[in-house]
Amino acid sequence: MPVNNELQLNEHWQKIYKISRIFVYVAFILTLLYACYLVLFPSASFTFSFKNPDSSKNTIVSPRDKNGTLNKNGKVKSGDTLVFDTNPIGDFSEAVVKFTLEKKSGPVQNSSVSTKRSYRSFFYPEGEKLTNADNNVEYPKLLSSANSVFLTSQGKIWPIADVATFESMGFNWNDVQKSNSEETGSYEKQKLFTLKSPQPDGIVFLDKSSGKYYVIKNETKRELANPEVVLPNLNMHPITADGKGLNTEEMCQLKKSFSIFKKYSCIIPIEKMQSIIGNDYQFKAGFGSDVNIQNANVTFKKTFNVKNLKSAISILKLRLTANYYGQ
């Protein structure tokens, strides 16, 4: 910009301009470094406001008690547990869990939060074994039509939100069958299938730890008694899950945060869970006193270290290759 050099300021303003210019350039470099940090060490934040439990801005999935009853008012009694799910994309080092209480709420005492990682439907309780006699499940299909991919199950059809959802749910691109609007229109249309959605009835999981196969039915997972009979009838590969994830638990003790508000938080180390398959982190907060929660918040973070830097660079390399050469 030659104009800057030609315009003359008096000595005093020239001095201010020089200092301001250095400040602008330093701020620019710092912003650039911060942007690189955000790309290489991304974080993912999830929240739930008990003041607006039906708001679409709530990203924490179904806060409930241990029996599965939805909690919409944020009230948890001493000895009770608040269970909720979050669905971040990628692997993280730690999860920062925060609860903001209502003004009139009593303090949080002797309370802890734990988390496990798997798929949301794989967390379902185990039902009876599925024998050939009650094997009347209609197995889901993945259909593609007009640049969209759909998941079908029990006469229903869900349009899959995006590539990230498809991949993080453990689906296989080779299972997608070409279809047309006539076929997809014959199913009962459902809402968008997003990262929050549980895999529907009929989805078959392979537990890689035990080698057992499970099918999802009425919010339970039932072991296939004779997988050799069922597997040839499937329209898509079983989703590989990890039974180890159901037993691997990390936890932390809730402590008062440095804040004028009634905020309690703790950090759960989840580095060890990076090897576990699944897009769902299920949290269980056990309270040792009666509380009235206003807001729940979970932030997943990656620790700034060489290992995570190398992993981030290799992910970027993979994305770059995938963009130009395909998967």
Binding site: L9, S20, F28, L320
Partner: peptide
């Protein structure tokens, strides 16, 4: 002087923003 000073510093900021915008567009494309 204040106006000319702001004019000059905003030109610097604009140049930096345009360079960043170009780099970001290329990164997003890749």
């Amino acid at each position: 002087d204040l106006g000319i000073f702001l004019y000059k510093i905003l030109n610097d900021i604009l140049l930096l923003l345009i360079i960043s915008y170009a780099m970001l567009l290329i990164s997003e494309g890749a």
